[in-house]
Amino acid sequence: MDVVDFLKQLPQALVPEEAADTQCVLQFNTSKPTYATIKDGACSVTEGSASDPDVTITMEDKDLIELLQGKLNGMTAFMTGQLQVEGDLMMAQQLQTIFDQSKLA
C-alpha cells in the first residue's frame, strides 16, 4: 500500500470524542505530500500541500505508516532524526490519541 492510500484511511480511524475540539491541518511530507484537515469531529485527506498547515510532519513513507500504526515510537523517531516536526508540537503528540491505530492497516 502506498502512503497516500494509507493516509486516506485516517477519516475512518478518527476517534470523534478525542477530536471533537480539534481543528487543524496536518501536512505529511512524504514521497507524495498529503494533508489531513480535522474539523468538527471529522477528518478529510487531500493530496498535495496545504497553504498554512498547523503541523508539518516529514518522514519516509514506511516510517510514517509505522508511526501511525503504533509500531514506531514517535519520541524515538524524533530523537533519531526519522521524524521532523514543524509547527504545533502538542498537536503532533495527539496524533496517537485522535486516531485509532487498530483501524490503520
Rank of each mutant, 00 (worst) to 15 (best):
M1D: 12
D5G: 15
A42N: 13
Q93R: 11
I57S: 07
A13M: 02
V3D: 01
L72R: 12
D5T: 15
P53Y: 05
C43N: 05
N29A: 13
M75V: 14
L68V: 09
M59Y: 11
Q9K: 14
Q84W: 05
A36E: 09
L104D: 08
E47K: 12
I65M: 12
P11G: 03
T58S: 15
I57E: 07
Q12R: 13
L7W: 03
M79K: 09
C43F: 01
L95D: 11
D63Y: 12
L14S: 02
V85S: 04
I57Q: 03
F6L: 04
E17P: 00
L89R: 07
F99S: 02
S44D: 15
M75C: 00
T22P: 03
I38P: 10
D100N: 14
A77V: 13
A20P: 00
A105K: 15
I65F: 07
Q23R: 14
L83W: 09
I98F: 08
N73L: 10
L83T: 09
A13T: 01
L95S: 07
M90N: 09
T37S: 08
D2E: 14
A20F: 01
S31W: 10
T56I: 09
P33W: 11
E66D: 15
S49K: 15
E60V: 12
D88L: 06
D63E: 13
K71V: 10
N29C: 10
Q84F: 06
G48C: 04
F6I: 02
C24S: 11
S31H: 10
L89W: 04
M59G: 08
L14A: 05
E18P: 02
F78P: 00
T30R: 09
N73D: 15
E60Y: 10
L95A: 07
G87C: 08
E60H: 10
A105E: 14
A13L: 04
L104P: 15
T76I: 14
I38D: 14
F78L: 14
K62F: 15
D100V: 00
T56L: 03
Q12E: 09
L72K: 10
A50Y: 07
G41N: 08
C24V: 14
M75G: 04
A92R: 04
P33D: 06
L10Y: 04
L95N: 05
T56H: 01
L68S: 04
D40H: 11
P33A: 13
Q94D: 12
Y35W: 07
V4Q: 08
L26S: 00
L83Q: 08
Q82C: 00
D100S: 06
G41L: 07
Q94N: 11
N73I: 12
Q82S: 12
E86Y: 08
L64Y: 04
Y35A: 03
V85C: 07
K8G: 00
C43S: 02
V85R: 02
L14M: 02
L72C: 01
Q9E: 04
L7C: 04
L83G: 02
V3Y: 03
T30A: 12
T46A: 13
G41M: 05
A77T: 10
M79D: 01
L83M: 13
V85P: 09
G87E: 03
M91P: 00
M91K: 15
L104M: 11
S49N: 15
K8E: 08
D52H: 15
I38L: 10
D88G: 08
Q82A: 13
